[in-house]
Design a protein around this nucleic acid. Structure first.
Length: 277
DNA sequence: ATGGTGGAAGGTCCA
């Protein structure tokens, strides 16, 4: 099974890029964040025509929004309001075969890394805290958590650890909370499972840096976690950097993981698609 | 201390 996650920054504005990505990389399941569209205006047909018949969509007008588009049937579709944001930042579904999939868009947190003066940062910390609690007391079962977590935890997940220590997304309080959430759910970082932590790895490059590729001032804000029972099924994982260079690109690159589950064998990711070095 | 870019909404917010 091939699973992809991508902060698309408006699914309608970038529907051509989404279709190109689906044709070139053929994931079985695609998780999107920042779809920026109400559910009844979601471009379902574009996905149906490429074989993604099963949809779990939770969106709102103009901001946020998450979606799961799948070739595999989805059941038990649910969503939750985390940290009382009132935003559409989460949707979950069960994949045929029994894997529980959670798709998150964690709040970015604003500019000032102080929960006392910046309500957005406070909300981000509470959001992550609730995520830690939510998965801590569940029975061990196959599950996958993906999304734009808006935190780059490792020193090698940012272009400069020192320069970003006080920048929201890489502050010590966020990193600590990220690690606590990961540990509470016994989550395995599927991407770092294959790409060693001493290697620089990013999934986001700001629009504000004109030559993003050459400057390469990126951060790894997007993540794929799997429950420990699924870790032996992991076959490969990669940040797919190419779509960041496409015309009208999202500022985030998609991530793909391949798993051997059931009778669906994972295809190897094409050479040359991996990020870094 | 500021601005750089981008999408969507709609004369501004959020990232």
């Amino acid at each position: 099974m091939r699973l992809a996650t991508w902060n698309i920054n408006s699914v309608r504005f970038r529907i051509t890029l989404v279709r190109r990505f689906l044709r070139e990389f053929e994931p079985d399941v695609l998780c999107l964040q920042e779809t920026k569209v109400e559910d009844d205006l979601f471009p379902r047909r574009a996905f149906e025509s490429l074989g993604y018949a099963h949809h779990a969509i939770r969106g709102q007008k103009g901001y946020h929004g998450v979606a799961i588009l799948s070739k595999i049937p989805l059941t038990n579709i649910t969503s939750r309001d985390w940290a009382e944001t009132g935003d559409t930042r989460h949707i979950s579904a069960e994949l045929d075969g029994g894997i529980e999939l959670h798709n998150f868009y964690v709040p970015a947190g604003g500019d000032v890394p102080d929960p006392k003066t910046n309500p957005k940062f406070d909300q981000k910390l509470r959001f992550m805290g609730e995520m830690a609690d939510a998965f801590a007391d569940q029975d061990p079962r196959p599950r996958i958590l993906v999304g734009d977590i808006n935190i780059a935890p490792l020193e090698t997940d940012v272009w400069s650890h020192k320069n970003l220590l006080k920048i929201v997304s890489h502050t010590p309080v966020e990193v600590e909370l990220f690690e606590r959430t990961q540990a509470a759910g016994n989550w395995v970082d599927a991407v770092r499972h294959f790409i060693p932590p001493d290697q620089q790895l990013y999934s986001w490059w700001s629009y504000r840096s004109p030559n993003w590729e050459k400057a390469d001032k990126g951060r790894r804000l997007d993540h794929v976690w799997v429950s420990p029972d699924l870790a032996p099924s992991l076959r490969s994982a990669a940040v797919i950097t190419k779509p960041r260079g496409w015309k009208k690109a999202s500022d985030h690159a998609p991530i793909i993981i391949d798993l051997k589950v059931g009778d669906i064998e994972a295809g190897d990711i094409n050479p040359g698609t991996q990020a870094g070095t």
